[in-house]
Amino acid sequence: MRKQIMKSTLTLCALAASFIALPSVASQVDFPHIVTTGYGQIEATPDMAEFSVRVVQSQLNADQAKEGVDSVVDTFLAKLASAGVSKEDIKSSNLYLTPQYQYPDKGQPELVGYRASRTVTVQVMDIERLNDYLDSALASGINQVDNIRLKVKDESQYQAKARTAAIQDAQKKAQSLAQGFEQKLGKVWQITYKQPQNQPVVMRSMMMDSQPESNSYQDSVITIRDRVDVVYKLSN
């Protein structure tokens, strides 16, 4: 009886293994083929930007900290509105308020004040105005720049060019390999594509106690990349 149970168990395990292996076997290519990966990239000059600034204040009580931060943010938002920045291009975060403690060598921690902060993110459709908006932030009392992202407005057209370059790269590689191994390149059997996430140019964060690097973004370029994986059939 024990042997029959063991035999039955082994049979079930073998069947289970065969079912698990079926999808991988079905996905295997069982004919002569070449697998190539094409890469393409296009460089673009940034024509828009997005920056995030923050005001941070420490006061003796929570109300003073809140009022001080809100006043700075309201002033900055008013300056942006007067400069013609659309409300849709501005995002202002809620107040972030934390108590500040002093920790003596002996005894309990002592509350010494409150630290308040708010962040404003602005999308700049005309990159030539970027320095003006940063100057307005400084004049309003903003004391920290979290980051500055340089971007392009019509990224899709650059992505399409990079994709075309990737396709051409894959084709050239396949033709070269087939010719080198004295094979005839057949039709495309499979194309695998997953659009990469291009990262905008990000300037380093900085405190607003000094003037930002006003002209450093003008020499920046954005690289738009793409790739494609292709399986070609081969014939003698």
Rank of each mutant, 00 (worst) to 15 (best):
V152C: 01
N147V: 10
K172R: 13
G141R: 01
D146L: 12
G141V: 03
Q144T: 08
Q168Y: 12
T164P: 00
S176M: 13
I142H: 02
K151C: 05
K151L: 14
S156H: 12
V145D: 04
R149N: 13
E155P: 00
A166S: 08
Q175F: 08
Q179D: 11
T164I: 12
Q144N: 12
D146I: 11
S156E: 15
G180V: 04
R163H: 14
K151F: 03
L177A: 10
A174I: 05
D146R: 12
L150V: 05
A162P: 02
Q179I: 07
A178V: 06
S176A: 14
L150W: 02
N143T: 03
L177T: 08
R149V: 03
N147F: 15
A162L: 01
V145E: 08
D169W: 02
K151G: 02
G141I: 01
Q157Y: 10
A170M: 04
A165L: 15
I142T: 03
A160Q: 13
V152F: 05
Q175H: 09
Q159R: 14
A166N: 00
I148Q: 01
Q175A: 12
L150M: 08
I167T: 06
V152R: 04
D169S: 11
K151H: 06
Q179N: 11
L177D: 05
D146N: 14
N143Q: 06
D154N: 15
V152I: 15
Q179A: 15
L177G: 05
K172L: 13
Q144F: 11
R163W: 07
G180W: 00
A166D: 02
A178Y: 05
T164V: 13
V145M: 14
A178W: 05
R163A: 09
A160N: 09
N147G: 07
A178C: 07
A174C: 07
I148V: 15
L177Q: 10
F181E: 09
Y158T: 03
Q157F: 08
A170E: 01
A166F: 04
I167P: 01
Q179E: 11
I167Q: 07
S156Y: 12
N143D: 05
A178G: 06
